[in-house]
Amino acid sequence: MANIRIVRVLISLLMCIAFLAIPSANVQAAAPPDPAWWARYGADTSGYGSDVRIAADSLGNVFVALYSYGINGSIIVKYGKDYVQGQAPAWVVTVADVYSNYTVNDITVDSTGVYVTGEGYDGSWNDVLHTLKYDLATGAMLWASPATCPGEGPAHIALDSTGVYVNGSVWRTSEDYVTVKYDKGTGAVCAGWPVYYDGVEDNDNDYAKDIAVYSGGVYVTGYSEKYYPDAPYHDNYFDIATVKYDSTSGAQLWAHRIFTWDSDDEDECYIAADSSGVYVAAASYLGDNRDTMTVKYPLNSATPLWGPVYYGGTYDDDVPAGIAVDSSGVYVTGNVEDSSGDGHYYTRKYGAADG
């Protein structure tokens, strides 16, 4: 009997331990860790800002670009890898000193410099894409692209070992994608560039939204208008149009379009590429509301490897806000609305091989 009693006690103890190990709905999640540092710039002298962009180099230096309403132009701020809370930035440059009323839309960095691109005006107040390169250590401007590439933002930027690639939109007989390549050393426009994508109908609008470069290919994506006579209301809708160019010559290698049922060109779409393919995330109607659509292409073909796959809530529009890829899969983040009508940020991971 004593042995049975001991066994019962042991079982009771084990059950208590198991019960205590079950997470409780009332247990508060651990508080997020404090940041290593935070910095605030421009509140007293430059007015509030918008269009904030950020990039970091391999050493841990951080570069922030923003448009300041206080100076009616853009600012670039560097925080060094050894930055300590409360210190002044390593350097600050004012892009308005080069181009008035210039809006930085994107920023990136490599071992040779900091690159920004955006929209401004030429001497006759025509919209042009401006790209600038700055010295990493001092913030000195190394070059400014010639104001000869017509275009308007938002502009996006990508790099490879041979050049700097920028895309945006430009008005010709209608809005079209424009993509330009600059020499990394001088900022000169490379031979064969800029190149344009005019969609499938000359007088419909095409809005470039993002760019990626990988292994000799330049990939751009955006919204491209097309008339669909058999669709409800016999109206124009925007496809997601993804285009590949040769990174040397600028020759178009392939293009692919996906119908979205969307008549709004204001949504964003995003692109990323690695050795296994090209990934695009965009907003597309599936039923009564917009959901996030993700699709994967091979590097050298316009035929999707998988997708589109869709993710969204029940009640309202759900749109992407970014995409990234690593060796294990592709990550898409954005905003989704739940069944109560509340908005949430979401992040989903898809398998690289099958979505």
Score class of each variant (00 low, 15 high):
Asp34Met: 13
Pro35Tyr: 12
Trp38Asn: 14
Tyr41Gly: 04
Asp44Lys: 12
Asp44Phe: 07
Ser46Asn: 14
Gly47Gln: 11
Gly47Glu: 09
Gly49Leu: 05
Asp51Phe: 12
Arg53Ile: 07
Arg53Leu: 02
Asp57Gly: 10
Phe63Leu: 07
Ala65Arg: 04
Leu66Ala: 15
Tyr67Gln: 10
Tyr67Ser: 11
Tyr69Thr: 13
Tyr69Phe: 13
Ile71Glu: 05
Asn72Val: 06
Asn72Ser: 14
Ser74Gly: 11
Ile75Phe: 00
Ile75Gly: 00
Ile76Arg: 01
Ile76Cys: 03
Tyr79Pro: 02
Gln85Asp: 13
Gly86Met: 09
Gln87Pro: 00
Ala90Gln: 14
Trp91Ile: 07
Ala96Leu: 08
Asp97Cys: 03
Thr103Asp: 06
Thr103Lys: 14
Val104Leu: 06
Asn105Ser: 14
Asn105Tyr: 12
Asp106Cys: 10
Val109Met: 11
Ser111His: 09
Ser111Trp: 06
Thr112Asn: 14
Glu119Asp: 01
Tyr121Asp: 11
Tyr121Ser: 13
Asp122Gly: 07
Asp127Thr: 05
Asp127Ser: 12
Val128Pro: 03
Lys133Arg: 12
Tyr134Lys: 00
Leu136Phe: 01
Thr138Leu: 02
Gly139Val: 06
Ala140Lys: 12
Ala140Phe: 04
Leu142Trp: 03
Ser145Val: 06
Ala147Gln: 14
Glu152Asn: 10
Gly153Gln: 10
His156Phe: 13
His156Gly: 04
Leu159Glu: 10
Leu159Met: 08
Asp160Leu: 02
Asp160Glu: 02
Tyr165Asn: 10
